[in-house]
């Protein structure tokens, strides 16, 4: 896109994008560390994640402030208006992703026993899938690519499916050995956090779609998370 006649306007928009890129990068790091902390029961790393979240929150505040100032100063229209509104919305999704990573890390403290092998590998797979979703959606935003965003939007199904199987597995462990309930509950929340992160990446995908096309996505997303109605007594 060609430049604005008022150069400072370009700078403000580029500034928002840069801050959002930094924020996204931090969220990726936080998520990677949180998953590692949980699977290795590394409490020191977990603490690092917990403190690292402040910077993400700070960036979200800055993005929001700058976006509001730009709206007040420039009265943006069309593509510019969408760019700014979408930056605010994506920042809030990334901030939530940061919170979820932090919450996942926190649970490391509550887990005393090494995880059963199958469960550990399931969680690890979920973690790397969530990381990939996050990485891809941030790339899609960086390139303003609707196609890449829609790819992420569609592939969230797999993360949902994996969450379902982990959910069932954890229930089985808990039924077999009630002493594991406390630990499994924490792991369940951890897995739920990863699943939620996937949902936030689809929100971002929808925003990228709007940013590029000027139209909101009307079709419903295929959802595979069935755990909210699942009851083992029914099986």
């Amino acid at each position: 896109m060609t430049d604005h006649t008022v150069k400072a306007f370009d700078k403000e928009i580029v500034g928002l994008r840069t801050m959002l890129a930094e924020m996204g990068g931090l969220a990726e790091e936080q998520l990677a560390s949180a998953i590692q902390a949980l699977s290795k029961r590394d409490t020191a790393l977990a603490d690092q994640v917990i403190h690292g979240d402040d910077r993400i929150d700070e960036l979200e505040r800055q993005i929001e402030e700058n976006a509001i100032l730009t709206i007040a100063r420039r009265q943006p229209m069309a593509q510019d208006l969408r760019e700014i509104m979408v930056a605010i919305r994506i920042a809030s999704d990334v901030e939530r992703i940061g919170d979820l990573a932090k919450n996942t890390a926190k649970r490391t403290h509550a887990i005393s026993e090494p995880l059963p092998r199958r469960l550990a590998s399931g969680l690890k797979r979920m973690g790397s899938m969530a990381q990939l979703q996050l990485k891809n959606i941030l790339d899609a935003y960086g390139r303003h690519s609707d196609a890449m965003a829609m790819e992420v939007w569609r592939s969230d199904e797999e993360l949902d499916a994996l969450y379902n199987s982990i959910f069932r597995e954890l229930l089985t462990y808990m039924m077999e050995d009630p002493r594991s309930i406390s630990q499994c509950t924490h792991l369940l929340f951890g897995a739920k956090n990863l699943e939620r992160i996937g949902d936030h990446t689809t929100n971002i995908a929808e925003n990228i779609h709007y940013l590029v096309n000027g139209k909101t996505l009307s079709e419903g997303r295929p959802k595979k998370d069935t755990t909210s109605t699942f009851n083992p007594a029914d099986e």
Partner: peptide, 10 residues
Amino acid sequence: TQDYITGRFG
């Protein structure tokens, strides 16, 4: 239209 209303014209 886009270029004009967003202040990018000319």
